[in-house]
Design a protein around this nucleic acid. Structure first.
Lengths: 243, 243
DNA sequence: GCTGTCCTATTGTAGTACAATCCAACACTA
DNA sequence: TAGTGTTGGATTGTACTACAATAGGACAGC
């Protein structure tokens, strides 16, 4: 029996984190854009200390780069970053799915739950509601990873998922037809239903890796065209991930 | 050519993070122990705001648990935590080694570098200097992971490595003979020298997983004896990892 | 023993202040 | 013109203070 940790109200700093995080994911804050404490605190109506706390957390999440006395800027997002995000996500998520299968967590109840998530993707696809599709897609994968029962793994995946979403939003490069998205998830679901750890692991790996190839290739092409584009300064890449 | 990011002096908050982090790893701060902002700032001679920043970062690292208006406590470290830490580390590190092999990064130069790390382990083993062995062991694995060339993966591994060390320090359960430690690394090195991705991946997985089994089993036994021991409140486990 | 009410410690947040530092603009020199 | 000081404004790093909100224990009353 899992003691419900009864949702506590988040602190104001947490709200600031969420606000800036979502803004970065949606591209409202562009890579390289400076996030000055004074202006943020004024815009959001909070104190500088609160904003500062949020920026430190965001740096830990890899969404902003901070350097001493130079402040925080929205972190870059290069083709290489995208490649690393997707390859790591593929490795972790396939491991999670393998664990779920090995532990027998892909039972009828779990499959029914995943089926509902799949249905949500299909409904969004019918309406051609792209944001809803992305959200439903993410929920599907979050739910699947959750079946691993591996808390630490789930946390790391959640952190990567944020970056994954950012790639999708920011580089509006991934535009498959809704039919393809639905089919890919249907196919994956079919493999999950077999419950075979090896097959499941392989299928998830390919499911995650597949579309990312196009994205990375197009980002690379774009960078080559504009001269390292959004990368700012590809050499000065330090933090960026989980921390 | 990698632009050297020329080491910048860390901020005071970073120093506080390092201090508390090391204290937690070494067990000087016990699991469950409250870390009150006032006392910490007084002990360290810094302001409360600085300590507060550090605590937020530590929460992101999963070393402390914070909840609103209740402050920060050193996070628990249960057998289950240890198991998750090592299984995830095994998955990530074997993936890193596989990448290194696939990309041809396990070349002569790299092997020579790993050989020097191995020699450092051997020297420490000869002196029966356990802390030096742990440090050298960690450097070996960090170096190996670095050969993957996968920055995000390296960051996630670094975060996990901290927890891994904490398990070693905190649960003084892992006491193999120096000879065994040396032999295990020599064997691993031999497989690395083959450069075969599959063999390398498998060997690293087993190398990491192997010793952890004993640790987890003994922690479990200890918990069963004392009644969930250090776990405090195993149900209320929320954050803990990468953030 | 249970319940409700206070009290105290601590956090959450705001605000101010000031030193340290970066950076861009400017001036100077060869 | 190119390169090299110099300077001043903007921003961060850190400290300090203040106060409302909350948690959690002590205590009284039943």
């Amino acid at each position: 029996m899992e003691q419900r940790t009864l949702a506590r109200p988040p602190s104001l700093a947490d709200a600031v984190v969420a606000h800036i995080r979502d803004g970065i994911i949606r591209g409202e804050y562009a890579p390289g854009q400076p996030l000055t404490e004074a202006s943020l605190s004024q815009d959001l109506g909070t104190s500088r200390g609160t904003v500062r706390e949020a920026l430190r957390e965001l740096a830990g999440l890899g969404l902003v780069d901070r350097s001493i006395h130079r402040g925080a800027v929205v972190s870059a997002l290069t083709a290489r970053d995208a490649e690393e995000i997707y390859t790591l996500r593929a490795a972790l998520e396939s491991f999670a799915a393998q664990l779920a299968a090995e532990r027998g967590n892909l039972d009828d109840e779990a499959l029914a739950m995943l089926g509902r998530r799949l249905a949500a993707i299909e409904r969004a696809a019918e309406r051609a509601d792209v944001p809803a599709m992305v959200a439903a897609d993410m929920e599907f994968h979050t739910a699947l990873s959750g079946l691993s029962g591996h808390g630490l793994l789930i946390e790391h995946l959640a952190a990567i998922q944020v970056h994954s979403r950012r790639v999708l939003f920011y580089s509006d490069l991934y535009r498959p037809t809704p039919e393809i998205v639905v089919r890919r998830h249907r196919d994956l679901y079919a493999v999950l239903a077999t419950g075979d750890p090896y097959q499941v692991s392989l299928a998830v790996d390919q499911h995650v890796t597949g579309p990312s190839m196009d994205i990375v290739a197009q980002m690379r092409a774009r960078e080559a065209g504009t001269g390292t584009a959004q990368g700012l300064d590809a050499a000065r890449r330090g933090r960026g991930g989980p921390a």
